[in-house]
Simulated assay, not measured.
Amino acid sequence: MARHRRDPQGFLRIMMAVGAIAIAVALLAVGGYALWRAVDTAADPVSAGIAPQSSESRPASPTAVPVLAITVTGTRTRVYVAKPGDGEILVSRVMARGETFVSDERRLAVVVEDGSAVRIRVNGETRPPAEPGVRLAFTVDGDRTAAGA
């Protein structure tokens, strides 16, 4: 009678398949958690202890009044600011409460998704807030502000 011997390669294949499934499940869990944190609207970075981010564009001196300063006072809103001449985008993202964008550029195109969620100062003067949910679009041109659609 012939002796039956176990196939060592068969056991190795099963262990590799189990390992691959475990890695795939772990990656799905990490990706799902990251997605959940990214779309979680209840998360407030200020109360979570995360320092608000600011723009790299700053006034030349601490006493100078910036041309444009946008501070988010609501929960969050999308802010878009660009130079109209060359199309350089200075900011285009959702900003959270407490974040501020400051720029000294003389010509700017500005769009704010929810005008009631921000405080806007142009050349040191505060613009009146918009009604909740109203989109603001305007241009800053030199020392004056032109309203837009």
Rank of each mutant, 00 (worst) to 15 (best):
A109Q: 14
M95W: 11
D104G: 10
L90W: 08
G87A: 09
I120G: 01
G98I: 08
D104H: 09
V110N: 09
V122C: 15
G115C: 06
R121L: 13
E113K: 12
M95Y: 07
V118Y: 03
R106L: 12
E88P: 00
E88F: 09
G124E: 06
G85V: 12
E125Q: 14
I120D: 00
G87V: 05
A117P: 04
L108K: 02
E125W: 05
G115A: 09
G87M: 06
S92G: 04
V91T: 15
I120L: 09
V112Y: 07
R106I: 09
V81W: 02
G98K: 08
E105H: 15
V91R: 06
V102Y: 05
R121C: 05
V81C: 06
V94Q: 12
E105G: 03
R97L: 09
S116W: 06
T100Y: 01
L90K: 06
V111C: 08
D104M: 15
N123H: 15
R119Y: 00
V118K: 02
D104N: 14
A96Q: 15
D114Y: 07
G85S: 11
A117C: 11
T100M: 10
F101Y: 14
F101I: 05
G124F: 01
V94I: 15
R106H: 10
R97H: 15
R93M: 11
V110I: 14
Y80W: 15
A109E: 14
S103A: 12
R78V: 04
V102A: 07
G124C: 05
A82G: 04
A117W: 01
I89G: 06
S116K: 06
G98E: 09
P84S: 09
P84Y: 08
V112M: 10
S103I: 00
S92F: 12
K83A: 05
L108M: 11
V118M: 07
R107F: 13
M95N: 04
V118N: 04
D86K: 05
V102I: 15
N123C: 10
G85Y: 12
V102L: 13
V91P: 01
V112K: 01
S103T: 11
R119I: 00
E99R: 02
R93S: 14
V118P: 03
P84C: 10
A117F: 07
A82D: 11
D114M: 08
V110D: 06
E125F: 07
V110M: 10
E88G: 04
V81S: 03
V110K: 06
V111W: 08
T100P: 02
E88I: 12
R78D: 11
L108E: 01
S103L: 03
S103F: 00
E99S: 03
